[in-house]
Write a protein that binds this DNA or RNA. Structure first.
Lengths: 213, 213, 213, 213
DNA sequence: TATGAATGAGCGTTCATTCAT
DNA sequence: AATGAATGAACGCTCATTCAT
């Protein structure tokens, strides 16, 4: 007879041991591969376990359910990108908006395209499985870091720095995704950085003159 | 959903008769309602049929499978937004980039937020069910229209007008989605238009001076 | 991804159509057969469906889950026995305790041993799957009927008629079960009736003299 | 539970050492607690082991499988109750049926309600896990003891003393269970003794006059 | 043409049991 | 001897889709 327990999305055990760490990484990698090969509906726990070379029992020792696994994979990736972007923002306090944008966009694009296939694989589960909450939160973290950076800009003041930060972050995701999904290569990614920088700088120049709405 | 892949996604019968037209609209509306109520994986064909007041047998007379239905719903919505945006672009040939952006952004935001709950409901199926191909195609249509408009701008020239158009279109969906999902109201949508216009104008000003990468 | 809905034990659809009625009976019968053949843990939805000659999908069209099916089978059986016993009680109002007991015990034993294998099969699920609630309720119904009968006895008065009724009902279940599980035949069942009657009559004679505890 | 049938149900090692004895008792107690907390199908070997403070590996050193564990728990409890009842019977050889019944019923109820929650916990596993065989055997032991006692009664003779003994034993478990499951307290248990005594005495008086069926 | 009962492949998940450490 | 991570068979159940009526 089937029991029911409260569904949690948090991982089941802390990866304290090295072995666990490796297993979890293997499972993450397998998830990405299956996602890439079969799409979101093609991801089954059995396939993931098979590809990772573990039994599904083991898989469930690390994750309470499939959603939690998918969410964890998304979180790791999105978190890394966010971390890199935030780091870049922190390093550019007190600079010009030109420098800020150039550095931030480069960091974002570099992080997002370090393994383009991972980004590509994760666009689907990011939208589904409640992982969009994760995406939203990481976006917020980035926006906060951008905000903190922007208010230190030497060559511009913003009436609505917070809103501006959110728009800025939200606006760079779309073009990046388009380029990744189109299968871009390094040189295209470099071109993307220039354009995202132009997008950011142009926007910031414009809004530094808009009066409070 | 988890069935064979690569089925036909095209609707089963042309809606030549008025009756079919109405039925299909009812089904579309039902789909959106169920999507809103239950989320993407809470959507079942039976629920849609029930809500639409038709038998699932009938539903399958209009759509070869569930993916096709979802894709059609997405296509209609995204198509309408694209049409409105394209129309705006066409009407602004020979104008300044300021006017172009203002008009285009307004048209886009108005179309997208005419029924915000529909947009909200469709973000999930747009990513899944291979409907992202549809989204991509409609984006391309928009980008082409933007491109055709941009090259007629009286106050700017673009070395890479095509790439610029694509970046422009891709950059506005993110902020718009964020605002819709945050449950924005009309006044927020108006503010969004201003910012998207600033984003576009600023970007275009910047890139009209960038030399070919 | 798996949904969760509130688990109900009530049948899914009213058996209005003759066809449904037959299908449900077939499923009930199959359940009993599988129970008899494999025991309680051997009862699987697939086996029941197979034996009933329906798909498990159909099985789930009639019952929301396995527990509900088992509960329904138990309820039908226990309900029939209770009905027969209650009927007998009603028919003996105003009689002597000898006649009351003889008639009631006969009715109970006859109902319970009409198809001894069914009784035997259902002892297990009666204890599990929350079906014991059903058993308890039907026992209460019987006890109430016994109570209503006892207070009309011409040759005895009871200080605690309600408690007495409950003890009486509870006391006859054990011996009957023992006899059925021992594989008794008709002549043994007849002997059982005599002894249960003696048990009842003897008890009632004794307690009609006990002063209120 | 749903594993192969017909495994050994006998404990794996004789509890010769004091340590084993203690461990087994701990496991028994843990089993009862988990049973009480989660019901029969909420009982898992891991939970039992956890609660007992042993590893499941150790648990399997004492019991070949889960059924055997459950059966052992049931056996200990039912055995204790049977022992107490049998002891009482032995002590009442050559007495009147009134005294016999009073003493026997008191012993039975006292043993069964010494820890009512244990009795309550074990009703389910007693029916399942083939433990009903154990219950049946212990009942037989009791019935034999009752039989041996009855034939020494100074104030009655029984044509079918063996059958009578079986009916007597079987008839008292139902009311006792009902009272325990209803959450009775000591005073109710005392009342139960009176009624079971009445039940027994009344029955014996009646059947001491029945001629061989 | 419209219906909706029937289908059954396939999913997520559990947990008794083993065995390398 | 004791551990507990790993296993994987097997379960309950869903739901897109079909087709007899």
């Amino acid at each position: 007879m089937n029991r029911k327990r409260a569904e949690s999305l948090s991982p089941r055990k802390r990866p304290k041991q090295r072995r666990s760490r490796v297993t979890i990484d293997t499972i993450f990698e397998a998830t990405i591969q299956v996602l890439l090969a079969n799409g979101l509906d093609g991801v089954t726990t059995i396939q993931i376990a098979d590809r990772a070379g573990v039994s599904i029992g083991s898989l469930y020792q690390y994750f309470p359910n499939k959603r939690a696994l998918l969410a964890a994979v998304v979180k790791r990736h999105v978190g890394e990108v966010a971390d890199a972007t935030i780091e870049a923002c922190k390093s550019m306090h007190g600079k010009t908006i030109d420098d800020m944008c150039a550095t931030m966009m480069a960091a974002f694009v570099d992080a997002k395209t370090r393994r383009p296939e991972v980004s590509r694989a994760l666009y689907l589960p990011s939208a589904a499985v409640n992982a969009d909450a994760i995406v939203k939160e990481e976006s917020s973290r980035c926006a906060r870091a951008v905000h903190e950076m922007l208010i230190t800009a030497t060559d511009a003041k913003f009436a609505q720095a917070q809103l501006v930060s959110n728009v800025l972050i939200a606006s760079i995701v779309g073009p990046t995704r388009a380029v990744i999904e189109a299968g871009g290569n390094r040189s295209i990614f470099e071109r993307l950085k220039l354009h995202l920088t132009a997008l950011g700088v142009g926007y910031l120049k414009e809004v530094s003159t808009i009066s409070t709405g």
